[in-house]
Design a protein around this nucleic acid. Sequence first.
DNA 1: GCACAAATGCAATACGATTGCATCGTCGAT
DNA 2: ATCGACGATGCAATCGTATTGCATTTGTGC
Lengths: 136, 136
Amino acid sequence: MLDVELVKKEIRPTAVRLRVLEQFQSDPAAVSLNELEERLQPVDRTTLFRTLKMFEKKGVVHAVHDENGIIKYALCADSCRCSYSDHLHVHFSCKRCKKTTCLHDVQIPEVMLPQGYVPQDANVVIKGVCNLCSGL
Amino acid sequence: MLDVELVKKEIRPTAVRLRVLEQFQSDPAAVSLNELEERLQPVDRTTLFRTLKMFEKKGVVHAVHDENGIIKYALCADSCRCSYSDHLHVHFSCKRCKKTTCLHDVQIPEVMLPQGYVPQDANVVIKGVCNLCSGL
DNA sequence: GCACAAATGCAATACGATTGCATCGTCGAT
DNA sequence: ATCGACGATGCAATCGTATTGCATTTGTGC
């Protein structure tokens, strides 16, 4: 069934790609290239790198820069068309457990930019302590 | 008069620091270490690096990661206390002129995080075409 | 002027991102 | 089934920014 999802998006379902997709679906957190490499080893970094870039281009995942500027990838929601407004949701980066979570449901209310500014993409990261670590 | 501002924040007003502060005040755009180095040359990168880190810690500037994950620094507004809500304003990164602008006035409306998430800092970057480049 | 601490400058390192290139595998055409 | 082309993979090398170590210089208080 994973195959189908990839084929739908014009991606040839190779072994590595299926494993990557599976990983994304099993864990909602956004992951960096390094993290992905650790979890899927043994796999070549470069292959993963290119897989992620391809997934991003094809709209399977979207990238955000975490609070350290490191690229992390998260699965797109079904309804996501990777448009500007689709990316206007919050990514939460926990300083305790270091995990970055894609909060699809937390949309940023409309941003009123000054005259002349044309938005095309967004990167919203909030740093703090996540629900699991705060104990609240 | 620049001296005073630094002293107020417990920063010894050295030559380099004054030049850096002057640069920030003369141009509202957020700048990276490299950009700063180019404009202020000849100055040593490391000194600038440490100056920026210190300015950040003392609340003179705040840092954002632009859409490429590169750290850019922008002058804090007078009212800024570098709290979470102070950082909930938009930074606009223009893909045309490559400049990142700190839109102090564009505050993100309150973000409703799910139960348990404790926000402490934020990084909001919107990419697109800025007012000067769009011609609108 | 002296002693100490801060600031500076240069070199070296760390590390994520990215590319070049050779090899391998898959798939359609013959 | 075989050939040829193209996509996918793996390994090594490179790039760019961030960061640290250490020696030297500068500034300040005594």
